[in-house]
């Protein structure tokens, strides 16, 4: 209770510095929040595309039904494979007639079906990496009755490169802005400690416990981080509401998962606490000598 009172007194004592610190911390985290929003939506889009990644193996016409059945069972047993769909020659022709309407006349006049039967393999989540896709295509192509296996290798690699870049940028920005926020809180708490230097010195001389002296400053750091985190959340939400309305052509964005928002605000508070602990250790802890 006293710690909270003292922490709030700290805000009253240097309101401009505290507001600046909360504002700057909030701004750092807003940029992080906006990037998180974009990354979350890019991640969702990539996930959708990833789910459509298929490895297709085209069968030679002389493949026997027993060979095909045995191969299908083997492929379904692979840990990376989610499903195996067999498309017969007739189904392939039917689909071509349906999907390629402009060539329906050509397909209608055919006496011999030129389209091959095929296997369509979908991979499980977590296995849709370029390496696994390529490896699965290689295993499929190894069957003697498979003429060719395709998986759009260039396209898959680009997709994964995009995801890696998005993750890397998110981590770099996150780390950078978190560092800025920490430095600001370190400075604010340090100023608060210096502003109360005389009181702290007297407390140390008369025998106040370290925790008694330090708690208000730790709380001030945590509250600054928390306030900055909430400010960032509010501004990010505002941007989320306003932004799609201005650009009607854009698909509606998905809001951040609750775990992200709650985790982000909590992380801001913890960051504030750690930054304050650093300042307190440097400025107050010395008077008690080595541990």
């Amino acid at each position: 209770m006293r710690s909270m009172r003292e922490a709030l007194a700290g805000f009253r004592r240097t309101p401009l510095l505290c507001a600046l610190s909360i504002g700057a911390t909030g701004l750092s985290l807003v940029i992080l929040g906006l990037f998180g929003l974009v990354a979350h939506n890019i991640g969702g889009a990539i996930g959708d595309v990833e789910r459509r990644v298929e490895v297709v193996g085209y069968l030679l016409d002389d493949a026997g039904p027993e060979q095909v059945g045995a191969a299908r069972r083997e492929l379904e047993a692979l840990p990376a494979v989610e499903s195996v769909r067999y498309v017969s020659k007739d189904e392939a022709l039917e689909r071509a007639r349906r999907d390629l309407v402009e060539f329906s006349d050509v397909y209608g006049e055919l006496r011999v079906n030129p389209l091959p039967a095929s296997f369509h393999l979908r991979l499980r989540e977590g296995f849709r990496t370029p390496e696994t896709v390529s490896e699965t295509a290689g295993m499929l192509a190894a069957y003697p009755f498979i003429e060719e296996a395709r998986f759009g290798d260039e396209w898959v690699e680009r997709l994964f490169a995009l995801r890696s870049a998005a993750t890397g940028i998110a981590l770099a920005l996150g780390g950078g802005f978190a560092l800025i926020a920490v430095l600001l809180i370190v400075t604010t708490v340090r100023m608060a400690i210096l502003a109360r230097g005389e009181e702290i010195e007297i407390m140390q001389i008369v025998g106040a416990r370290e925790g008694y002296i330090q708690r208000p400053f730790l709380l001030e750091g945590a509250v600054t981080g928390l306030a900055g985190g909430l400010l960032a959340l509010g501004v990010t939400r505002l941007a989320y509401v306003v932004f799609p309305a201005r650009f009607a052509a854009i698909e509606p964005l998905a809001w951040l998962p609750h775990v992200w928002t709650a985790g982000g605000v909590a992380a801001a508070a913890v960051l504030g606490l750690l930054a304050a602990a650093y300042s307190v250790h440097r400025e107050v802890g010395r008077a008690y000598g080595p541990s």
Binding site: E198, I205, V206, G207, A208, R209, Y288, G289
Partner: peptide, 23 residues
């Protein structure tokens, strides 16, 4: 001496300064 014992020690030893150190 342990760091956490120092406050208890200082309560046994009063200190007065030339410049008073009053708030």
């Amino acid at each position: 001496v342990r760091r956490r014992d120092i406050p208890a020690l200082r309560r046994r030893v009063g200190f007065v300064f030339q410049d008073f150190k009053l708030l």
